[in-house]
Nucleic acid binder design. Sequence first.
DNA 1: CGCTGACTTCGAGCTTAGTCGAAGTTGCCT
DNA 2: AGGCAACTTCGACTAAGCTCGAAGTCAGCG
Lengths: 153, 153
Amino acid sequence: MSKLANTLTIGQVAERSGVPTTALRFYEDRGLITSQRTTGNQRRFPRSILRRIAFIRSAQRIGLSLEEISQALATLPHDHAPTKADWARLSSQWRQELDARIDALQRLRDNLTGCIGCGCLSLKSCALQNQDDEMARFGPGAPRLKPATEGGR
Amino acid sequence: MSKLANTLTIGQVAERSGVPTTALRFYEDRGLITSQRTTGNQRRFPRSILRRIAFIRSAQRIGLSLEEISQALATLPHDHAPTKADWARLSSQWRQELDARIDALQRLRDNLTGCIGCGCLSLKSCALQNQDDEMARFGPGAPRLKPATEGGR
DNA sequence: CGCTGACTTCGAGCTTAGTCGAAGTTGCCT
DNA sequence: AGGCAACTTCGACTAAGCTCGAAGTCAGCG
């Protein structure tokens, strides 16, 4: 608890951001964040990393994958923390995604509600059954991202 | 394309339900469905399996895990397809879950909307940052079900 | 009878987002 | 100089929901 440099160790970043060191290293591995190294090969982060991490966690909360977040970050200046304008641009994009997701869920719910009385579950006619799979990507379980969409082999 | 027995092979079930044979075997493995075997050890399914599968896929679309679905199925008579009443009971339960999820997403969106202009992303003050993690379980990626909630070990 | 396609089991692999442990190195305080 | 916490890498493991391949068996048509 001393040595206030203008860089942070991974432990300090973890403490301040609430993100475990393991996750931070993982993010670096995936290119979401970067760091300098000391002569002894330890990571040193600029303070601006905290905002970047905040950005990442927010995006995750929205439901983006690290891959998508990575792409979003790629549209930002990588030498400093995102500006207000950057944030406005991306966050309104995300809001649209959220809107779409809410819509999809609502449609699903409405279908379900319509189905409660009918006990249908017919493979052909039930709206629940035939709803296109846009919900799939939001359920748990990664592989449902594309169940059998892969081109032949 | 002949031999219309009152039981179905796994391939026929796959074709009629749209669920791959691999998945069907997997479901059987997990106890979600069962089958008879021929003398040659091949699976033969009753036609009622189609409804059961429809049920399973619907539940998945709602966002339930196979484990949860398995539990729901356990409350049903296992000797025949779910009745109208069974379906009504479960589907209205699911609707509540959906409602909760929609609410959570809407709250998230509202926070995000409030944040678009502010460019805050402050670790301490931003509502997006401090929102409790109830959204986590609905994003993609299984492990987010409980990020670091595991009792110290 | 023979062929072929559909079936069987089994274990390995995929994906995402990490976590954990081992074995070894640094940084920093006293 | 010593000591200890914090750091390093690396590979293995988790969870869910499957998919794939290998190696072998079965069903049914001609």
